[in-house]
Amino acid sequence: MTVRVQENPFDFGAEAQAFATGRTDAGAVVTFTGIVRDLVQSPLHEMMIEHYPGMTERALSGIEADARTRWDLRDVLIIHRHGILRPGDMIMMVATASPHRKDAFEAAEFLMDFLKSRAPFWKKERTGEGEEWVASKSEDEYALSRW
């Protein structure tokens, strides 16, 4: 079980390969990665991600531990970046390994839902029109209620 919070980019291919290699205990590995998306209204120059060092690692470990109590997981990887990112950059990834694909898929979705609104990250977008903090969405909060 690995949680990493880092400013540097990560190699999605290498991470996924290392996570999935050499397993005989898990027949299913699911990965998800989040990418900085350009904006429709005004081109995005960059995205600044602020976080709360200390609490971030605690919150992510807590979410991961919660997932392990709900599904049969043999391994979990969470990587989340902070600092300055640009459109096309990878922000974060999760990977789950389970004997069964349903557990791996559901756990990955659960991790994503809780990462969105329970891990202390805040995004600020810089466009030609200025800077703006990204507002949380009510559907992100609603997404937690299904678990």
Partner: peptide
């Protein structure tokens, strides 16, 4: 470093943090 609400007692607490709703992922 644990989320709580505004009615929570402060006794024994060392660190309080205020922030907007989180936007991770």
């Amino acid at each position: 470093q644990e989320l709580t609400d505004f009615n929570a007692p402060l006794e024994g607490v060392r660190e309080v943090a205020f922030f907007p709703p989180m936007t991770g992922g």
